[in-house]
Computed example of a mutant assay.
Amino acid sequence: MALTTLAASPWAYVVMAGILIIDGFFPFVPGETGVVTLAALGAAGHGPNVWIVLGVAIVATMIGDAIAFAIGRTIGIRRWRWMRGPRVSRAFEWAAAGLLRRPTVFLMVAKFVPFARVAVTMTAAAGRLPIRRYLPISFAASTFYTGYHVIVAVIAGKAFASMPLLGAAIAIVAVILFGALFEVVALRTRRREERATPPPDGTGTAWVDPASPEAERVSSDRPLDS
């Protein structure tokens, strides 16, 4: 079939990498679907090498996250009007609060929530998380996130080796369901934290959006990981 033919082509890696890069800063693109599909077909013997899929996916995911990080560092999270809407502002405030408490864990966990991972990455950049600290976290988070999808895909692909497309479909459904469950848990946790503590306002804390008016009133020598 056309899908298995494309999966066996070197172009499959290029397409997957492109989707993952875009997904890093534009979460409406289902990047994990490409990873799961190729890994499942590869495990069933009808696609690319699973280890190459994993390696390319990790690198592409890091590049996508780096673009989101660069956007946050360059324009901040208050520059455009849509960023200042109530729901988006709450998401950024929630991300700031989490990054202040546990930046490493928060960046890794946020990978599993599409919209949250972009907000958290941009907030970390706007809050001046040092690049030297961000890069190893990004590598660890990308490896853990991508590895999970590949493991699920390999299990499904091998279990349905005689029906590779069915195995790929089952793997996709599994990761989507897990992602939805994770998002529900994260949303409930966020709401509980919002009720328990007031959102950060950029003053009196280590975090501040450089693009916000508060940036002029906060010393520039107080980075996120201070």
Rank of each mutant, 00 (worst) to 15 (best):
M1V: 12
A2M: 15
L3S: 10
T4P: 06
T5A: 14
T5N: 09
A7G: 00
A8E: 13
S9H: 14
P10R: 02
Y13E: 04
V15M: 09
M16Y: 00
M16V: 03
A17T: 02
G18N: 07
I19S: 14
L20E: 10
I22A: 14
G24D: 10
V29M: 15
G31E: 07
T33H: 12
G34E: 08
V36R: 09
L38P: 05
A40E: 07
L41G: 03
A43Q: 11
H46K: 11
G47S: 03
P48F: 01
L54C: 02
G55Q: 04
V56C: 06
V56F: 03
A57N: 06
A60R: 01
M62Q: 04
I63W: 03
G64V: 06
G64R: 08
A66P: 02
A68P: 08
A70D: 08
G72S: 08
T74H: 14
T74C: 01
R81N: 12
W82G: 10
M83A: 05
M83I: 00
M83V: 00
R84S: 11
R84D: 12
G85C: 08
P86S: 15
V88N: 12
S89M: 12
A91R: 13
F92K: 04
A95W: 03
A95C: 03
A97V: 09
L99T: 01
L100T: 10
P103F: 00
V105H: 09
A110I: 03
K111A: 10
K111T: 05
K111Y: 05
V113D: 05
P114F: 13
F115V: 15
F115L: 15
R117Q: 13
V120N: 11
A125E: 00
A125R: 04
A125V: 04
G127D: 05
L129N: 02
P130F: 00
P130C: 01
I131T: 08
R133Q: 15
R133G: 02
F139M: 15
A140H: 02
A141M: 06
S142T: 06
S142P: 05
S142E: 09
Y145C: 12
G147H: 10
V152C: 09
A153D: 06
A153S: 10
A153C: 11
I155G: 12
G157Y: 10
F160E: 08
S162K: 09
S162R: 10
G167W: 06
A169K: 00
I172Y: 01
V175L: 01
I176V: 12
I176M: 12
F178D: 05
G179T: 01
E183G: 13
V184K: 09
A186F: 05
R188E: 13
R191E: 13
R191W: 13
R195L: 14
G202F: 03
T203I: 14
T203E: 13
T205P: 00
W207P: 02
V208R: 08
D209S: 04
P210N: 06
P210V: 12
E216G: 14
R217F: 14
S219G: 14
S219I: 06
S219P: 07
R222E: 15
L224T: 11
